[in-house]
C-alpha cells in the first residue's frame, strides 16, 4: 500500500530539480506542479494514472518511487512507513520502470543478476519467462536494444523483481501490438492480493481492461480518484442519436453514430466505461462528475 499525504512539489527555480514544499515554505516565486495531493493506493489493485502532458504524472511517480524527497517532511508512506530514498527495506518493495530507459552498457542477463542482489524476492524463472515472451536476446547489451526492446527488458526486470509495488511510466511507448499483448498478459498474470501496479499512460485504451482504479490528474491535483467498479455503477456511458438525451447528459461528445454521453446510472446495471469520454468530462467539470460518487 502506498499513501501520499498532502504533497506539494514545485520548482523553486524553473528548469531545476523539483522539490517538495511544505506549508512553511515560500511558494510565491515558484512553479508548483502538484499542490496538496493526497492519495491512497491499495494492494491487490491495478491503478491507471492519466492526465495530459506536463500535468505532473511523472513527477508524482518519481516522488512515490523515492527519487524526490525531503528528510524533514515525509509525504510518502509505503505500507504505513515513511519513505525516503535510502531505506532499502522500503525501496526494495518498489520497482519503477521510467519513461525513458537508460542506455546501460551491460548485458540483459547480467543486469538481471545484478538486480537480483537488491530485490530479495527476485525470480530468475520469472525473468526468463518474460524474456521468452517478449522475444528478447539475453546476451544483448541493453544500450544496443531498440527503444521498444529496452522497454521490454525493463518490464521483464520489473515483473521478475516481485516487488510488491510495480510502477510503470508510459509502459506502452515503443511497444508493438504483440508486445503490448504480452504486457497485458504479464500484468494479468502477475497480480496478487499483496501486489500493486501503477500505470501512467496516455493510451488508456491499451490497458483499460486491466484497471481496477482510475486517477486523473489535472490542475495540480487528482480530480478523479475512483474505482472502475464504482464508476460503472454510478455512471452510465451511452451512445445515442436522440438530441433530447443530450440535455440530460452530464457530458457529451459527438461521434460517428450520434453522441457519446455520460448520464447518471439509474438502470441498476453496471455500465462499461468509455475512458476517453470520462477523461474529457472530468477535465471539463470534475465536480459535476464527482458529486455522484459517495
Amino acid at each position: 500500500m502506498i499513501e501520499v499525504k498532502d504533497l506539494s512539489i514545485g520548482y523553486s527555480i524553473p528548469g531545476n530539480t523539483p522539490q517538495i514544499f511544505t506549508h512553511s515554505d515560500d511558494y510565491d516565486s515558484s512553479e508548483i506542479v502538484l499542490r496538496g495531493l493526497s492519495l491512497k493506493i491499495e494492494s491487490g489493485k491495478v491503478y491507471g494514472l492519466i492526465g495530459r502532458n506536463g500535468v505532473g504524472k511523472t513527477t508524482l511517480l518519481n516522488c512515490i518511487s523515492g527519487l524526490i524527497w525531503k528528510n524533514s517532511e515525509k509525504k510518502v508512506f509505503i505500507d504505513g512507513m515513511p519513505f525516503s530514498n535510502g531505506n532499502p527495506n522500503l525501496s526494495s518493495r518498489i520497482f519503477y520502470v521510467t519513461d525513458t530507459t537508460p542506455p546501460i552498457h551491460v548485458r540483459v542477463d547480467k543486469y538481471a543478476r545484478k538486480l537480483s542482489m537488491f530485490y530479495p524476492l527476485f525470480s530468475m524463472d520469472c525473468f526468463n519467462e518474460c524474456v521468452e515472451l517478449f522475444g528478447l536476446n539475453y546476451k544483448e547489451y541493453i544500450d544496443n536494444l531498440s527503444l521498444g526492446q529496452k522497454k521490454m527488458a525493463f518490464l521483464s526486470f520489473a515483473f521478475a523483481s516481485n516487488a510488491s509495488h510495480i510502477i510503470l511510466d508510459e509502459p506502452t511507448n515503443g511497444l508493438d501490438i504483440t508486445s503490448m499483448r504480452t504486457l497485458r498478459k504479464l500484468i494479468a498474470s502477475n497480480m496478487t492480493d499483496d501486489k500493486t501496479i501503477i500505470i501512467s499512460t496516455h493510451h488508456i485504451n491499451e490497458i483499460s481492461s486491466l484497471l481496477d482504479h482510475i486517477i486523473i490528474l489535472n490542475n495540480k491535483n487528482a480530480v478523479f480518484d475512483h474505482s472502475v467498479l464504482e464508476a460503472g455503477r454510478v455512471l452510465s456511458f451511452v451512445e445515442s442519436d436522440k438530441e433530447t438525451d443530450k440535455e440530460k447528459a452530464l457530458y457529451s461528445m459527438s461521434s460517428a453514430y450520434g453522441n457519446r454521453m455520460i448520464l447518471p446510472n439509474t438502470s441498476g446495471i453496471d455500465s462499461e466505461i468509455d475512458y476517453e469520454l470520462l477523461y474529457e468530462a472530468v477535465l471539463d467539470d470534475s465536480n459535476r462528475i464527482n458529486s455522484l460518487f459517495k
Partner: peptide, 20 residues
C-alpha cells in the same frame, strides 16, 4: 563503474542506502 551518469536515476532507485 556500472552506474555512471547516464544511469544516475537507476543508481538512485537501487534499493540500498546512500552510505552503502
Amino acid at each position: 563503474l556500472t552506474f555512471n551518469e547516464q544511469m544516475s536515476i537507476q543508481w538512485n532507485l537501487l534499493p540500498a542506502s546512500a552510505f552503502e
